[in-house]
Amino acid sequence: MIGPGFADPVLGAQAAFRALLEATAYPGRVRRIAPQPGWPAALPPAMAALALTLCDQDTPLWQDAGPEVARWLAFHTGAPPARAEEAAFLLCIGAPPPLAALRLGSDEAPQDGATLLLAVASLQEGQGRLTLEGPGIAGAARLEVGGLPPRLLAERAALAPLFPRGLDLVLCAGESIVALPRSIRITEAP
């Protein structure tokens, strides 16, 4: 028995996309996506919603949330399962694979870089140890992330010299998301 997707696939996807569009346009700001009953408990609801919204036959997909999630994703999106290095989208609830091994696009087609959706414990905008600067941010923005994998920011910073090649992160905590596109710089207060 496979659980449901969006109750209204058209408007559900539109609302979730719009939340991610705004999150990507204003990095560091928290946006919410309304959860729906029956989605796999292993995924944060916001991550489940974004997978339904963005993935399909054209997007090789990697995930580490187990077979039940795999069946649910296959049924609702048709996205072909892929190894992490080949995936367009990665749904990650555990420790993420090394970022440098993922799809980073090319200088001519940097848009081929992967999108990594990463589960974290909590997200709080406007304060915290992370300072964000770059496109989408007036001056600087502060962000607190609970449960950020320890190596992540260093690995991400190591990719910065490759820009425009790179990958884009979406942090998911329950119903909340924050986008960290490759274009922004993140510094961490000790």
Partner: peptide, 18 residues
Amino acid sequence: EATKRMIRRALLKALAIP
């Protein structure tokens, strides 16, 4: 919806690479 998904993915990458 398939066309919208394709365009939405392109829009997100476009914002990420201004």
